[in-house]
């Protein structure tokens, strides 16, 4: 369970990205965060695994307050949270298998991982994750040989290999074409359903967020202006979140 209590974030340049956010996300939810670019979606998401540190308020993950943890404790927190990025963030010159295996590095001592000495069960875990994502046969090709959709699946496999309770996805489909987008979103839905992993995703395309997420959080100028079931979203609510009607590029359309 994730709990935001009065969380604010002000960047050193004075930009207030989050203003007094209060939220609670229960285990197993699929949350879509929507809002204009620059509204604070990414900051909200990244504060959960402390890729960005909040400036005030309290943030609890399973009742542990995370704003004061650092070093080894922080790494232990992060290894239990998977993260997916817009540009996949794979090491392109490394094999798919090794990329996925990096999901296990925080579970083992430095000297073992530096020499690539992972236990057999970790190696199998990596391969099982790839199989789950349907790209087992690509395991030993270089990541840059894969298409965008396949690369995002590798990133998902890397996250799964962490055995996470939660996956954060920062614009996971923004660099994919419409068809792959749907496939990758289906993968997210499947992971959420089959493994009971909580998914929190920033979404540029509102219709996708409404289709896949069970809960929508709308952000405007660093404040939560909507929080409810996807079914409850109406055109008026969207105007409230976006301050205007949706632009063409903000819906995928089908």
């Amino acid at each position: 369970m994730i709990k935001f209590v009065d969380v604010s974030k002000t960047y050193p340049n004075g930009v207030k990205a989050l203003r007094g956010v209060n939220l609670e996300v229960k285990d197993g939810e699929f949350v879509g965060i929507i809002g204009l670019s620059g509204a604070g979606k990414s900051t909200l998401l990244r504060s959960i695994n402390k890729m960005i540190s909040i400036t005030s308020g309290k943030l609890y993950i399973d009742d542990i307050e995370i704003s004061s943890i650092r070093g080894k404790e922080l790494r232990m927190l992060r290894r239990s949270i998977g993260m997916i990025f817009q540009s996949f963030n794979l090491v392109k010159r490394m094999s798919v298998y090794n990329n996925v295996l990096t999901g296990r590095v925080a579970y083992h001592p430095t000297f073992k991982t530096v020499f690539g000495l992972f236990p057999k069960e970790d190696k199998l875990m990596a391969l099982e994750s790839l199989d789950t994502m349907g790209i087992l046969e690509k395991a030993f090709t270089r990541a840059d040989q894969l298409s965008g959709g396949q690369q995002q699946r590798v990133a998902l496999a890397r996250a799964l290999t962490q055995k996470p309770k939660l996956i954060l996805a920062d614009e996971p489909v923004a660099s994919l074409d419409p068809i792959t987008t749907v496939q990758v979103m289906d993968d997210f839905a499947r992971i959420n359903r089959d493994f009971g992993i909580t998914v929190i995703a920033n979404m540029h395309h509102v219709d996708l967020a409404l289709k896949y997420a069970t809960r929508i959080i709308g952000i405007k100028d660093g404040e939560v202006v909507f929080d409810g079931k996807s079914k409850e979203i109406t055109d008026e609510k969207l105007v409230q979140i976006y301050g205007r009607s949706l632009r063409h590029d903000e819906v995928l359309g089908e």
Partner: peptide, 10 residues
């Protein structure tokens, strides 16, 4: 793998 699939690491 647990589901019986095999893969050879080159």
């Amino acid at each position: 793998l647990t589901n019986g699939k095999t893969i050879v690491k080159p």
